[in-house]
Design a protein around this nucleic acid. Structure first.
Lengths: 206, 206
DNA sequence: AGTACGATGTGGACAGTGTCAAGACCTGAG
DNA sequence: CTCAGGTCTTGACACTGTCCACATCGTACT
C-alpha cells in the first residue's frame, strides 16, 4: 500500500497521466519533466528513477499510445466481415483517424517525436509501432487475395494508405488543412475521404 | 558593407543558415537560439532583434521552406503538359516528396513545428503554406475538368493526395516505414507509389 | 527475529536555455 | 554636425535536464 507520505504507489502511471495533461494543454514541445513531477506531487528528480530520461518518458507515452491504437484496431476488426478487405481497410482507416483526432496528445507524441532515435530499431517503441502497422498490412494482404490489388503493388498500397491516414491526421491536428473545410466537422471530412478511397479501391473512378 | 567587428551585415540570412545546419545535425527539437547565435559569430541575444522570439526564428525558417517548395512546384509545372491533370499531379507529388527527402531540415520545421500556433490564421506562415497548397488545388481542378474526378469530391481528392504525400514523407524521414523497404532507395518507393496512384486515377484498379 | 539490499523518492548542485532590460555602437537623414 | 533609430553586447533572472549523495521504504534471506 505504501505510506501516505513518502512512496507514491503508482508514480509510473501518474507521470504518464501528467504528460497527457501537459501535452494536451501546451503541446509536447514545452513539456518539462519538472512540471510533470510537480503535477504528480513528487520531487523534481523522481521521474528519472522510472523513465531514466526525458526521452524515456516520452517514449513510454508514445508506446502507451501505440497500444491504445492497436487495441482500437483489434476492436474494430472484430466487428467487421473478416473476408472483405475493403470494409476492413475502411474501418481501420476510420479508427486511425478518429484516434488521432480524439487523442491528439498521444498521437503527436507518437509521431511528432524525435527524428532518427539513435537505437530506434529493435526498441520497444519500434516494436509497438510495428505491431500497429501489421494490422494494416494484413488488411492489404486480404485485398491481394481478393484480386483487388496486384501482389507486386501490395507494399506500395499499404504505404499509400498508411501515409494518407497519417498525413490527413497530422495536417488536421496542425490546422494546416485549407480553410474551405471550416464548415466541416471532422466526421464530414472523414466520410468524404473514405468515400473517395472506397471508390478508388473498388475499381471505379473517384 | 558594415564594419568588420560590430555589425554583421547579413545576420538575418546567417541565422537562417545556422538553423538549417543545426536542425540537420541534431533535429529541431534541440535547436537553441544561443547556439545559432554562436555559429553566426554573434552575441546570444542578437537574434531577438531580427526574429523577436525562438518561435519567430522557426517561423521564418518554415516560411523559407514553403517558398523553396513553391518554387519547385512552379518549376515542375512549367515542364509538363499543362492540360494533363494526372501528369501534373504526379510531377507535383514527386516534387513534394523529393523536397521532403532532400531537405528534411526545412521540411520537419515546416510541419513538425508547433501545433495550433495562437494567431496562426492570417500569419505570413499560413499564407506561405496556403500558396503551396494552391498549386495542388489547381491540379485537382484540372482533373475535374477532365472528368476524372467528380466536382463534389474535388476537395476530398485534394486532401487525400496532399495527405498521402505528407504522410509518406513524414514516415520516411522518421524511419517509421516498415523494415521491408530496407532494400529500396527512396526513388524506388516513390516510383512504386506513384504507379499505384496513377493506376487509381486513370480508372483501373491498383 | 533482524539485517542487508534494491527500489523508490528527496535535496542540492551545475551547466545550459529563453527572455528581458540597459547600454554601446554604427549608419544615415536632417 | 547632430541626433534618431536600427543593430549588437552585456548582464541578469527564472527555468530546465541531468547528475550526485543521501533518506526512506518494502522485502527476501539468514
Amino acid at each position: 500500500m505504501a505510506t501516505d507520505t513518502y512512496h507514491h504507489g503508482d508514480l509510473h502511471r501518474a507521470l504518464l497521466g501528467a504528460v497527457g495533461e501537459i501535452v494536451a494543454e501546451k503541446g509536447f514541445q514545452d513539456l518539462s519533466l519538472r512540471e510533470a513531477a510537480r503535477r504528480a506531487g513528487v520531487s523534481h528528480s523522481a521521474p528519472a528513477h522510472h523513465f531514466g530520461d526525458k526521452e524515456g518518458l516520452l517514449d513510454a507515452f508514445a508506446i502507451e499510445g501505440f497500444e491504445l491504437l492497436t487495441a482500437r484496431f483489434d476492436a474494430t476488426a472484430a466487428a467487421v466481415d473478416p473476408d472483405d478487405g475493403v470494409d476492413l481497410l475502411e474501418s481501420l482507416g476510420r479508427a486511425y483517424l478518429t484516434f488521432a483526432v480524439e487523442d491528439p496528445a498521444h498521437y503527436t507524441v507518437m509521431f511528432g517525436h524525435d527524428k532518427t532515435h539513435d537505437d530506434y530499431v529493435g526498441s520497444p517503441l519500434s516494436e509497438a509501432g510495428d505491431a500497429c502497422f501489421d494490422r494494416l498490412t494484413q488488411a492489404v494482404v486480404l485485398l491481394v487475395r481478393q484480386g483487388r490489388v496486384a501482389e507486386a503493388d501490395a507494399r506500395y498500397v499499404a504505404t499509400l494508405l498508411w501515409g494518407a491516414c497519417h498525413g490527413i491526421a497530422a495536417l488536421w491536428n496542425d490546422d494546416k488543412l485549407p480553410h474551405f473545410y471550416e464548415d466541416h466537422t471532422f466526421e464530414g471530412v472523414l466520410d468524404g475521404v473514405m468515400g473517395v478511397i472506397r471508390g478508388l479501391l473498388e475499381g471505379g473512378r473517384a
